[in-house]
Simulated assay, not measured.
Amino acid sequence: MPDTRHSADCADSAHSAHSARPLRIAVIAGSTRDGRFGPVVAGWTLGHIQQREDMSADLVDLVETPLPTVFPAFGQPPAAGTEELLAAVSPRLAEADAFVVVTPEYNHSFPASLKNAIDWHNKEWHAKPVGFVSYGGISGGLRAVEQLRLVFAELNATTIRETVCFPGGWAKFDTDGAATDPASDAAAKTMLDQLAWWAHALRDAKAVRPYAA
């Protein structure tokens, strides 16, 4: 009878190393509007992730990495230059274990630039958790987040219950980009802790059984 102990030990060792690797978190700055406040909120979010030993952060700024806005007809090749633009974003989303979406609220919803980035991708979102940091007027961007939950559910992603929001966000940061209310920092930790739990759980599950949409 073959001895399977060595193979099992190797598999356990590989799984342990995989589980120990810091989680790759893609922070998506969703606003591309002139004069946007998003970089302040995204920078603050990035700082919280960088303080953690269990995570590494990659900022995907949709201004610095613009994506095509015209989709090809079904069955037709994409327009010239499309692949080059996607190459600056798609591999980074594919490599991410989880996402934090930083979004404002425009007209009771989220920016068209963010929806465009979501729609250019599909399997990159599959079986991965998504957290949200929102900002805006009196609602703090929460109406944008509620709509994004529906979109990501369609893409087989898991959205995190805990969110961070900044009502009247422009007045909630000092000149150094730090949040003025300590409760915001506490909320960020809670959201990231929850994101980490889901990211580890889903990454480990996919290592055992690849996800099939």
Rank of each mutant, 00 (worst) to 15 (best):
E162F: 02
Y106R: 12
T32I: 15
A186R: 14
W197M: 07
H48V: 00
G30V: 05
D176Q: 12
R52F: 07
N122P: 00
V145I: 15
D176I: 01
A188N: 00
E83G: 08
D3H: 09
V102L: 04
A153I: 00
D204M: 07
P167H: 11
K172M: 13
R5C: 01
H126P: 02
V70F: 12
K206P: 00
A183T: 13
N107P: 04
G136K: 06
S19T: 11
F132L: 05
A42F: 01
N107A: 11
D119N: 11
F71V: 10
L150G: 14
S134P: 01
D9I: 09
G137I: 11
P39A: 07
P39D: 09
W44Y: 13
Q51R: 15
P22A: 09
M191N: 05
D9E: 15
G140P: 06
T32C: 13
P22Q: 11
D204R: 09
T159K: 04
V70H: 11
V89T: 14
S184A: 15
A42G: 04
E154I: 01
Q194D: 12
L202Y: 03
G177T: 07
A8Q: 14
E162D: 13
A26G: 01
R24V: 05
A57R: 01
V151L: 10
I28Y: 02
F110E: 05
V133L: 03
F71L: 15
E124F: 05
P129R: 05
P39K: 09
S16W: 02
L195W: 04
N156V: 03
Y135E: 01
R52P: 05
V60L: 15
A127F: 13
A212K: 10
D174A: 09
S113K: 04
A188V: 00
E124N: 05
E105I: 09
L59Q: 01
K123R: 14
G136A: 11
A98L: 07
M191V: 05
S56D: 13
L86V: 06
L202G: 07
A157F: 06
G140S: 08
A94E: 13
D3K: 09
G136Y: 08
L59P: 03
H18Y: 13
S184H: 15
A73I: 03
G136F: 06
Q194F: 00
S56N: 10
Q51I: 01
A127L: 06
E95K: 13
N107F: 10
E162T: 15
A117R: 06
S184R: 12
A188K: 00
R161I: 04
E83M: 10
R21G: 03
T32E: 11
W120N: 07
H121P: 08
W198H: 14
A87E: 12
D34F: 11
R209Y: 07
A186V: 12
F71M: 15
L23F: 03
R203Y: 01
